[in-house]
Nucleic acid binder design. Structure first.
Lengths: 148, 148
DNA sequence: TTGAATGCAAAAAATTTGCATATTG
DNA sequence: CAATATGCAAATTTTTTGCATTCAA
């Protein structure tokens, strides 16, 4: 972590062990729900923190730009280091694993969006759903079978 | 709507006015949360349906391939016609409006993912966040100010 | 008639809020 | 010492579930 302490101080906020622990947990987990962060904090630091502290901590961390969150699956929010957000998340609909692609790989695409729609895409927030190499063979059914 | 009746029948499911109304509401709204669907159903058809019926109806409709859902914002699920899902959603972080881009515009990108990651992307489920032409000038702060 | 769907209410989950106490600066 | 965070519990919000009744086939 670069400098949580001064970042907090710079905003007139306080440096607390809870905030450090939450950031440490997010760092270690890569992708985690608030609940998972709470669990991880407990295992690593001894005492588990209440969810409310996790939520508030995550909020501050996100405000400071240390973490970001996305909805990788369709239920829970997933928090991760902001540094990791510089990658595009490839979420497999089969096994649920999350791979990462470089932002540059979408350069042509974002260029199209900008020129044709005047839309400035922030692909660092993008999750692409699909099928990884391992699961590819399986997805015959339940796919592209729309009515129209 | 193509043929909800026979699609339901084909699955041994029943054709009910509630299901028709829910599909009609999703059709009319383009992007709607379960709650919004309930409201719309009420305004259009007279009696509002209980949320549980909305959820169950949406589930069946999704199962049949008539509707799909995505998390356009980071809180509520947004349901829309499956036909609409053949477009990529461009969600503006400024005004919240949702524009649509053609799947082909991402062809190069998905090609990259396939050749470089063996990942078969389903862009019809993709929501791209960013800034539309109108909001573009505003987003100086709160953007890319990470610590690293 | 028969089983699936609805409607209602209660149960679960997930997230937020109020407030006294503990901590940071 | 003053103000912010925490911890706990209660309150919200969102989604799911149980079950008797209604309705489609």
């Amino acid at each position: 972590m670069s400098d949580l302490g001064s970042a907090l101080r710079a905003q007139g906020k306080r440096v607390t062990p809870q905030r450090r622990r939450i950031l440490a947990a997010v760092t270690a987990l890569a992708h985690a729900t608030p609940d998972a962060v709470a669990k991880a904090v407990g295992e690593d630091g001894g005492v588990e923190l209440p969810l409310s502290t996790i939520y508030r901590g995550l909020e501050v961390l996100e405000e400071l730009g240390f973490v970001t969150h996305t909805h990788l699956d369709h239920h829970a929010p997933s928090y991760h280091l902001a540094e990791h957000a510089t990658h595009i998340h490839l979420v497999c609909l089969g096994c649920g694993r999350v791979a990462e692609a470089e932002v540059e790989e979408a350069a042509g695409f974002t260029g199209n969006l900008r020129s044709r729609h005047g839309f400035d895409a922030d692909v660092t927030h993008m999750a692409v759903h699909g099928w990884c190499a391992d699961c590819a063979p399986d997805h015959g059914p339940h796919h592209g079978q729309g009515p129209g």
